[in-house]
Write a protein that binds this DNA or RNA. Structure first.
Length: 430
RNA sequence: GUGAGUGUAGCUCAGUUGGUUAGAGCAUCGGGUUGUGAUCCCGAGGGUCGGGGGUUCGAGUCCCCUCACUCACCCCA
């Protein structure tokens, strides 16, 4: 019997675990400096919680099971329902605005492919209780702050922004009837995957004539920089429902992230519950799926039984993010913790004091490793110390009985004979 | 759920028209030389060639089935 990790899941050997921690540390660090507080919920919830938001169809896409009390449960495929439940439960008592983040692992019963696995980690950032586009801009700023923290730049990734109400207004003005809106959004979303014929057929079904089909097609593809909303007004001829976007535009500039952002009316997001701003972070070559996606969902908390609460947020998964960093050559070689010192004995006399020295160094708070080898070959042991990525080698020899050791800086190669007290000082000073 | 591609050591791969006991490099482990990270030398472990069936005197190699992985579709909360 041979076992392997289940389809779409990953084992985290030390290297991978170090990377996962590095990423989650970055998520946490950036969240905190942007004023968000960390929360978490259970890894499984009542299956109904997910049906409320997404309908029966969701059941095939998640892992669900029954407990011994015949309760139907599901492993969390997303965090938003839990968040909504938590907010609805204490809505009255929580100080506003609510700014929360979370770094849950999520599971979806989908077929794995590039950028998509069955278990992954996702950074969730949400602001609840604020209607102002400042909150939308702050979410986008936080996402950009993280991307920047990991070495990405506007030439690598771009935040593509649209607005549900603005787009709805444009579509209505073009003659798309109210009942055709869902179909129109779907068409917008899938434009890049459709042939011209398929697109035209779809648009015609919505009641658009050839002229308007062409304009619709054009609108899907138009992109505008931050600060260029006037161009959008002129080219599309849109007048109303622009105030929200204009306010967001001003904030994006004020936050200093204009170069990272662009308006792209082809961004829809599949979710029916978005009500205003929607955005996705894409790698600029367009080769990979979205790194992150989010938007405003002002009615969701009510659906979960809470009071009417405006909300905006986004999610960013670890898989595509790692893919992008790898593709751009920004994946660090090794982010495992570096030992401060690596101790070994060059003589039998030195070996007598090995364990005691290690214990002293560890009690002093140093990340201390030592050689388990019987070899007294200094060259071999230095090599071992170096392979451990330690900053210093501590060499014990026959003088060590008198409290003197050789301290070698493995980065510079410098070596001095020092007392243990001096050693602690030198290592602490870097 | 649909389709395509790929499966030989931990990794990258070689393996002749089917022919003896399946190989290399890297990695791992042990040892040796040089009292200081290199280089070098010796050695070891690790494979039911993804699995099953078939053809054949003989299958890593040919055929069928199956499984896994990868990629694309559906979907993407």
């Amino acid at each position: 019997m041979k076992f392997q990790a289940p389809k779409g899941t990953r084992d985290f050997f030390p290297r991978e675990m170090a990377w996962r921690n590095h990423l989650i540390d970055a998520w946490r660090r950036v969240s905190i400096r942007n004023g968000f507080e960390q929360v978490d919920g259970p890894i499984f919830e009542s299956l109904d919680l997910y049906k409320v938001k997404s309908g029966e169809g969701i059941v095939n896409e998640l892992f669900h099971f029954e407990d011994r009390g015949e309760r139907e449960l599901a492993i969390r495929p997303e965090f938003t329902p839990t968040l909504a439940r938590m907010v609805a439960e204490r809505a009255g008592a929580l100080p506003k605005p609510i700014k929360w983040f979370c770094t849950p692992n999520l599971c979806r019963a989908e077929r794995p492919q590039r950028g998509r696995l069955r278990e992954f980690w996702q950074w969730n950032v949400d602001i609840l209780g604020l209607e102002t586009p400042v909150a939308d801009a702050e979410c986008i700023f936080t996402a950009v702050d993280l991307l920047s923290e990991l070495g990405l730049r506007p030439e690598h990734v771009r935040v593509k922004i649209s607005h549900r109400r603005t787009v709805r207004h444009i579509l209505a003005k073009m003659g798309v009837p109210e009942e055709g809106m869902t179909g129109a959004f779907d068409l917008l979303d899938r434009r890049d995957k459709l042939t011209t014929e398929e697109f035209t057929t779809g648009a015609t079904k919505l009641g658009l004539d050839a002229d308007r089909v062409a304009r619709f097609d054009q609108i899907c593809r138009l992109k505008y920089g931050v600060g260029k909303l006037d161009q959008m007004r002129d080219q599309i001829g849109v007048d109303e429902e622009m105030a929200d976007l204009a306010a967001l535009d001003a904030e994006l500039r004020a936050f200093g992230i204009a170069p990272w952002c662009e308006y792209d009316l082809g961004i829809v997001r599949g979710l029916a519950y978005y009500t205003g701003t929607v955005f996705e972070v894409h790698e600029t070559s367009g080769a990979l799926r979205a790194l992150a996606g989010g938007g405003r969902y002002d009615q969701l908390i009510e659906i979960f039984g809470g009071p009417s609460t405006p909300a905006v947020g986004f999610g960013m998964g670890d898989v595509v993010l790692s893919n992008v960093l790898m593709d751009k050559g920004l994946m660090p070689e090794d982010v495992s913790p570096r030992p401060d010192v690596y101790v070994f004995a060059a003589t039998e006399g030195g070996a007598a004091g090995l364990s005691a020295t290690v214990a002293d160094l560890r009690r002093a708070g140093l990340h201390t490793r030592f050689s388990y080898k019987a070899s007294r070959s200094v060259g071999k042991l230095i090599k071992e110390a170096s392979a451990s990525r330690a900053r210093f080698a501590v060499i014990l020899d026959d003088h060590s009985a008198h409290g003197r050791v050789s301290l070698k800086n493995l980065d510079s190669g410098e070596q001095h004979v020092v007392s243990v007290e001096e050693l602690l000082k030198l290592v602490a000073a870097k």
